[in-house]
């Protein structure tokens, strides 16, 4: 086994950590801990992006790392915490299927995405290409989280975590997207978050709860 340079080993370590955090979010019962885990995932992403920037001398990646740090570790968790305070919703997160089953489905998804990523990763020439599988797996796990959760806030956290996975995929496959695109996505996420926050209030106004199964009855009330 050829030994990788030290920075590549650290990237692998943080990639594995990212995957672990994705599973931890999937298994988390409490909404506050879920948001803290999301912030930790953002932090791991920022650190690994900074290491990629250091190892490959791609200075624009430092900006991406800084952007990730400000947006996903500080701003978005703060917004979410504020939303929870205002809505006064500290309930436990209820899943549609129980947690051990979700974990097993998660493992199957990880195997699937690792297999899917292997041929794609061979087309790439970056030093981080091996981590593409982990990036895809965290996207899939976030999807799973959005599917299996019933309440609005965990679904939004799942959506944001999916963006984390996509960002990591871009970094590992092509050393990141152009700065303009990255800024655009960051703004999108921020604006999306604010709009969703307004939605939460509207949903609660209408149904007195954030349970999204109430939305299914909209049609019958016409």
């Amino acid at each position: 086994m050829a030994t990788l340079p030290l920075y590549a080993q650290f990237i692998n370590l943080f990639a594995a950590f990212l995957l672990l955090l994705a599973f931890a979010m999937l298994a988390q019962r409490r909404v506050l801990s879920l948001i803290n885990l999301f912030a930790m995932q953002g932090f791991a992403l920022a650190v690994s992006t900074a290491i990629v920037a250091y190892g490959t001398h791609q200075s624009h990646l430092y900006w991406s790392a800084g952007l990730t740090l400000v947006l996903k570790v500080l701003l978005l968790p703060w917004l979410l915490h504020r939303l929870i305070r205002q809505l006064d919703v500290k309930w436990d997160v209820e899943g549609l299927i129980n947690i051990p089953t979700t974990m097993l489905v998660g493992i199957v998804l990880v195997v699937f995405s690792f297999n899917l990523a292997l041929p794609i990763a061979q087309l790439s020439h970056t030093v981080t290409r091996a981590t593409l599988g982990i990036a895809m797996a965290s996207v899939m796990l976030s999807f799973l989280m959005m599917i299996t959760r019933r309440k609005a806030i965990p679904q939004v956290v799942g959506f944001l975590a999916m963006e984390n996975g996509l960002f990591f995929a871009a970094t590992s496959a092509t050393y990141g997207m152009p700065m303009v695109v990255e800024l655009g996505i960051a703004l999108d996420v921020l604006v999306g978050m604010i709009i969703l926050g307004v939605f939460f209030f509207q949903i609660r106004e209408q149904f007195d709860s954030l349970d999204l199964k109430h939305l299914e009855t909209l049609k019958e009330n016409e």
């Binding site: 692998n12 594995a16 974990m103 493992i107 091996a130």
Partner: peptide, 24 residues
């Protein structure tokens, strides 16, 4: 206990998968 040991199993499987993917 199933949740505790299920987590252990999950970690062990992830270790194996990560090893297969990253070779480390």
């Amino acid at each position: 206990a199933p949740e505790f040991l299920g987590t252990a199993f999950l970690l062990a499987v992830l270790a194996m998968l990560v090893n297969l993917l990253l070779g480390s």
